[in-house]
């Protein structure tokens, strides 16, 4: 009698087939996309050369231009700060509406979710296009765009925090005879305060990055200068602007990371 030898296998036949189909499907879609876009590998070969060429044109960065970009950089930082501040103020009621355990009724819950979804599914730059029409070109339109985009982000994440609070503390405050507002202030808010601070700082840091591109559609900040420089092929100026943006973004990221470890 022969002993049947069994080889151990991690996956059974069905899950192996599924995995294979998934990988194959992905590959086919990518190849089809490649065909659809009529891409050529040679284009990418040329890309390396073009980037090298660009790098030599950008060197050395146009240092004499540096004083000119200080004011637009400060404007960029202002846009991020004010936009975040406005978003913070607006997101608290939105978070309240979109938290299932606190929202007054079904309708307000739906309203909260709609605000969050609409704000989040439209990119900052598209909001900026809209507000440039409404409020004219300039930093104001950019600030409002940043604020409107951030409301959804903060509203969603704060709403999720609110859904995870301890109901006991809320009950304890309301059992002392506190009204609804006082319950929120003393029973609910302290529980989410670290999250509020942390998320706002985090969003501010994202907004600094977002504010650097608003100028492409005329909504103020350093992007206006970058757009002009790129448009006139002034590559050495482009280099100094990109370096300045890198500096500001990495600095704000550092500040944000430090502040968030403190806030937790």
């Amino acid at each position: 009698m022969s002993v049947e030898s069994v080889t151990w296998e991690r996956h059974d036949r069905r899950s192996r087939l599924l995995r294979f189909a998934f990988a194959l499907g992905g590959l086919i879609v990518v190849l089809a996309s490649w065909q659809y876009l009529e891409l050529d590998l040679r284009d990418f070969g040329g890309a390396t050369a073009a980037f090298a060429d660009l790098a030599t044109r950008m060197f050395p960065p146009h240092l004499e231009y540096a004083p000119e970009i200080v004011a637009p950089l400060i404007e960029t930082i202002h846009i991020a700060a004010v936009g975040t501040m406005a978003a913070f103020a607006l997101s608290i009621p939105v978070a309240y509406l979109s938290a299932e355990n606190l929202t007054p009724n079904r309708l307000t819950y739906a309203l909260g979710k709609v605000i969050v979804t609409v704000s989040r599914s439209v990119h900052t730059i598209i909001w900026a296009l809209v507000f440039v029409i409404m409020f004219g070109p300039g930093a104001l339109a950019g600030t409002i765009a940043i604020a409107v985009r951030s409301v959804g982000f903060l509203g969603k994440l704060l709403g999720e925090e609110l859904e995870e609070i301890d109901a006991g503390q809320q009950e304890a405050i309301s059992s002392t005879g506190a009204n609804r507002f006082k319950t929120l202030l003393y029973g609910v808010f302290p529980q989410i305060k670290p999250a509020v601070v942390g998320l706002t700082i985090y969003r501010w840091d994202i907004n600094v990055r977002g504010a650097t591109i608003l100028g492409f559609v005329g909504a103020g900040g350093i992007g206006v200068h970058l757009y002009t420089a790129v448009d006139s092929f002034a590559w050495r100026t482009v280099a100094i602007i990109v370096l300045a943006i890198l500096f500001v973004v990495i600095l704000s990221e550092g500040v944000s990371a430090y502040a968030r470890t403190k806030a937790q």
Binding site: L39, D43, G46, T212, L226, V230, V238, L246
Partner: peptide, 26 residues
């Protein structure tokens, strides 16, 4: 560096280097 620079900034530079169209975007 990749994380600090917004995609649109990379795109605007890529468009000038490779011309308009999906290649720059990709």
């Amino acid at each position: 560096i990749s994380r600090a620079i917004d995609g649109l900034i990379v795109a605007i530079i890529a468009v000038m280097a490779f011309g308009f169209g999906p290649l720059a975007g990709i």
